[in-house]
């Protein structure tokens, strides 16, 4: 990950219209954006689209980034907003599909079973827990980096990660049935 000074320098240049500097920022933040989006939308492909849309939107709005040193936090805020907007769109699209009674099969994914189990287990996490977990265990951010990105203390970051992992392990150990406790089961059995 880039240092705060590097981010500040690159963001200042990007604000002045330097696309090469923005490209470096994109590369450095792409995975963090993806993790933040995944924490909200909980579907990898959707999270990738949200991250990309948010990065494009960030370049368009970069003039409003008043403090280049805090570019990373500013960018993740855009990602969160974009992800929430995506959830709204997804919800209305789902309602439309349900109304039309059209079944759209989900695309098959590699490691589908494990991936589905992880995603189902992550359903039990709060947005903050999922974000910290993905940033740490997927992106590989350190606690100081997470604290800087999310504007929280390192202690809180450690605490949230601990809780998130505990919940995940519990739900993974309990199996798929436990992960769907809260879900509606169509025509649920006895």
């Amino acid at each position: 990950m880039l240092s705060v000074d590097e981010v500040k320098e690159l963001a200042s240049r990007a604000r002045a219209g330097d696309t090469a500097s923005f490209s470096k920022l994109v590369r450095a933040h792409y995975r963090a954006c993806y993790c933040t989006a995944l924490a909200v939308v909980r579907l990898p492909e959707d999270a990738r689209d949200v991250a990309q849309d948010a990065l494009v939107a960030a370049y368009r709005k970069i003039g409003s980034c008043q403090e280049p040193a805090r570019f990373s936090g500013w960018l993740l805020t855009i990602v969160r907003h974009q992800a929430i907007e995506h959830l709204r769109t997804r919800a209305s699209a789902r309602r439309l599909r349900e109304r039309a009674a059209v079944d759209v099969p989900a695309p098959a994914a590699p490691d589908g079973l494990l991936r589905d189990r992880l995603l189902a287990a992550a359903e039990g996490l709060t947005g903050r827990q999922a974000e910290v977990l993905f940033l740490h265990d997927l992106e590989g951010c350190t606690h100081p980096e997470i604290a800087g990105l999310l504007g929280i203390s390192e202690v809180l970051s450690r605490q949230v990660l601990f809780e998130a992992r505990k919940k995940m392990r519990q739900r993974l150990a309990d199996g798929p049935a436990a992960n769907h406790d809260d879900d509606e089961v169509p025509g649920g059995g006895p």
Binding site: V26, R27, L138
Partner: peptide
């Protein structure tokens, strides 16, 4: 959580960056 990673290596990260740019 590696199975959730859609840009696991430098090559795919470069490709994603190029797409965004």
């Amino acid at each position: 959580l590696s199975c959730l990673d859609l840009a696991p290596d430098d090559l795919s990260l470069d490709a994603a960056t190029a797409l965004v740019m």
